[in-house]
Simulated scan of single mutants.
Amino acid sequence: MSRRVALFLLAFGVWSWIIWITFVKNLWASDNSWAPDGSATGFFVVHLVLAIVSFVLGTVIGVIGYRGLRARRTEKVGA
């Protein structure tokens, strides 16, 4: 994997976490997320699942990028 691709994947992973943390904060504060009795609505559940999947994918992609950078670094040290 090239350094450029590895950096892109790592940056994507970090960006994904920043964006989805903000989304979850806004979701939690939204009036659409909670029924009058205080229970979560379908809107909340669906969007929370979407956010969790995005956290997982962002983490996996970021780890792949990080490992790509580390592999390139150890290649240069060993060479």
Rank of each mutant, 00 (worst) to 15 (best):
H47F: 12
T59I: 08
V46I: 11
N26W: 10
V5M: 08
T59W: 10
R4L: 10
F55P: 01
R70P: 03
G42R: 05
S16N: 07
N32H: 13
P36E: 09
G38F: 02
I61G: 01
V63I: 15
S39Y: 03
V45G: 04
S16W: 01
V14Q: 01
I18K: 13
S33H: 03
P36K: 15
L10S: 02
V56C: 06
W28A: 15
V63H: 06
W17N: 04
G58W: 03
F44M: 02
I64M: 05
V46S: 14
V45E: 03
T41K: 00
G13D: 00
T22I: 13
L48K: 10
R73H: 12
F12N: 01
K25A: 14
A40C: 05
T74L: 15
V14Y: 00
R3G: 09
S16E: 06
G38P: 01
F44G: 00
G78M: 09
F43T: 01
A40I: 13
W20K: 04
V63Y: 09
T41A: 03
V63C: 11
S33G: 12
I19N: 12
A35P: 05
T22G: 11
L50K: 11
N32L: 15
N26S: 11
D37G: 12
G13R: 00
I19H: 08
M1F: 09
W28M: 12
L57D: 02
H47Q: 10
A40M: 13
W17G: 01
R73I: 08
R67Y: 09
V53W: 06
L69F: 05
V56K: 04
R4H: 06
